[in-house]
């Protein structure tokens, strides 16, 4: 089967690839680009562990074909640091104890990043609504909500 040529900007780097037409973005990131921060937990869009940003908007990368994102910008958890410094969300997740097993963490942070991209000062209710896109099995979410609140404060 013929491969498809795509050019994607991944974490501020322009990358040219030949991918399978039926390859998901999650596969491309994990298998071709060694960006394993996005996790495959359900593969059916039910859990959010594979969330990355597509042109700044959070998406489930397990539900997207890589050919669909030709020409687009993708940000993964690995691309969140700026000038070698942790993003305030990453800092807040650490400081507030919002990380346990860590398997949902990158998806959770990317969902929160998407929220802060469109709403700099979300209310607690807005944070809860937004992160209700993602499943975490360990934390009970309380410290995740606190971490997102803290990050938005830090960024203000």
């Amino acid at each position: 089967m013929k491969t498809v040529k795509v050019t994607i900007n991944v974490n501020n780097e322009k990358i040219k690839l030949q991918v399978k037409p039926y390859e998901t973005l999650l596969e491309t990131l994990r298998e071709r680009l060694a960006l394993t921060g996005a996790k495959e937990a359900c593969s059916l869009g039910s859990c959010g562990s594979c969330t990355v940003l597509l042109n700044g908007t959070p998406v489930r990368s397990c539900l997207i074909l890589t050919p669909e994102v030709d020409g687009a910008s993708i940000t993964t958890i690995e691309g969140l640091k700026e000038d070698g410094k942790l993003h305030p969300l990453q800092e807040a997740f650490m400081e507030k104890g919002a990380v346990q097993c860590g398997f949902c963490t990158s998806g959770m942070i990317m969902t929160a990043k998407g929220l802060l991209n469109r709403n700099k000062k979300p209310s607690r209710a807005e944070i809860i609504k937004s992160i209700s896109s993602n499943i975490c099995r360990c934390t009970g979410y309380k410290k995740i909500v606190e971490a997102v609140e803290e990050a938005s404060k830090k960024m203000a």
Binding site: R30, L35, T36, G37, A38, K39, E40, T76, I77, E78, L80, K81, L86, L89, Q90, F93, M94, E95, G97, V99, G102, F103, T105, S106, I109
Partner: peptide
């Protein structure tokens, strides 16, 4: 205290078996 394992987990560099 901040957990010792959390830096790797918030940066996506923590490796799990499938990685």
């Amino acid at each position: 205290v901040v957990r010792s394992d959390s830096y790797a987990k918030v940066t996506g560099s923590a490796l799990y078996t499938a990685d």
